[in-house]
Simulated scan of single mutants.
Amino acid sequence: MAEAGQRPGASGLAAEFEQIYRAHVQEVTAYFARRTADPQTVADLTADTFVRAITSFPTFDPARGSPRGWLFGIARRVFAQHCERVSRGQDVTARLAGRRELGVDEAAELVVRIDAECRGRELLDGMAALAPADREAVELVDIAGLERTEAAAALGISSGALRIRLFRARAKLRKIVGEEHE
């Protein structure tokens, strides 16, 4: 058993990562389901996030932030890279090169999850008027439910900077929502 302040050995790391995976896989899947309605893409992005997480897990330092914030930081980067690939037309080629297609049951389950996140996608569409940095802050805190410290860590900013972004974004969203209901 590892002493206080130390990480467990290799087999203990596997068990620790498994706990983190089980605790957060649904949240990470929902994060991607709010961004795309394609079940295959949701599955691929979720898998890519956890592949990157498991390969970097031995260097994860819990003293620097929560596992949840760390995973969402990885998920953000995975999604940004996905968007870059799509804009360059590389996504289809990469997906077809060695990745397995989802089974009917797996795709149906992801379609249900994607449908459950429909409101989240609608909110994200409405947030298009926000600056990208403000939009990400609202998404992580208000939609994904991260604590402010976790969201700040995922975004690579201070808690104070996050509070400012949230204040500014929420004020603009209230104005937008108010205009739509008049």
Rank of each mutant, 00 (worst) to 15 (best):
Q6R: 14
P8R: 03
P8D: 04
P8H: 01
G9E: 12
A10T: 05
L13E: 12
A14G: 13
A15D: 12
A15F: 13
A15I: 09
E18Q: 14
E18M: 11
Q19Y: 06
I20E: 04
Y21G: 00
A23R: 13
Q26C: 07
E27G: 15
T29W: 04
Y31R: 10
F32E: 02
F32K: 04
A33E: 07
A33I: 04
R34Q: 09
R34Y: 13
R34L: 10
T36Y: 06
A37K: 06
A37V: 05
A37S: 13
D38S: 04
Q40I: 03
Q40C: 01
T41Q: 15
T41C: 05
A43S: 15
A43R: 07
D44M: 00
D44S: 03
A47T: 11
A47H: 11
D48I: 04
D48S: 05
T49S: 12
T49K: 08
T49V: 08
F50L: 02
F50Q: 03
V51A: 14
V51K: 00
V51M: 09
R52L: 12
R52W: 12
A53C: 10
A53R: 08
I54C: 09
T55V: 11
S56Y: 00
S56A: 14
F60Y: 15
F60C: 10
P62F: 02
P62Y: 02
A63S: 12
A63T: 13
R64C: 00
G65A: 00
P67V: 11
R68A: 03
W70F: 00
L71W: 05
L71A: 09
L71H: 02
F72S: 07
G73R: 07
I74R: 06
I74S: 00
A75E: 01
A75V: 01
R76E: 09
R76S: 07
R77Q: 11
R77H: 13
R77S: 11
V78W: 07
A80R: 10
H82I: 07
C83K: 13
C83M: 13
R85H: 09
V86G: 03
V86D: 08
G89I: 00
G89T: 04
Q90A: 10
D91Y: 11
V92C: 04
R95Q: 10
R95W: 06
L96V: 05
L96Y: 05
R100A: 11
E101H: 12
E101A: 15
L102T: 06
G103Y: 01
V104S: 10
V104K: 08
E106P: 10
E106T: 00
E106M: 07
E106L: 08
A108I: 10
E109G: 04
L110K: 04
V111R: 10
V112L: 11
I114Q: 01
D115L: 12
D115K: 15
A116Y: 09
A116F: 01
C118P: 03
G120T: 03
G120I: 08
R121L: 15
R121E: 14
E122C: 08
E122G: 12
E122M: 12
E122I: 08
L123T: 15
D125E: 14
D125F: 09
A128F: 07
L130K: 01
L130M: 05
A131K: 11
P132L: 08
A133P: 01
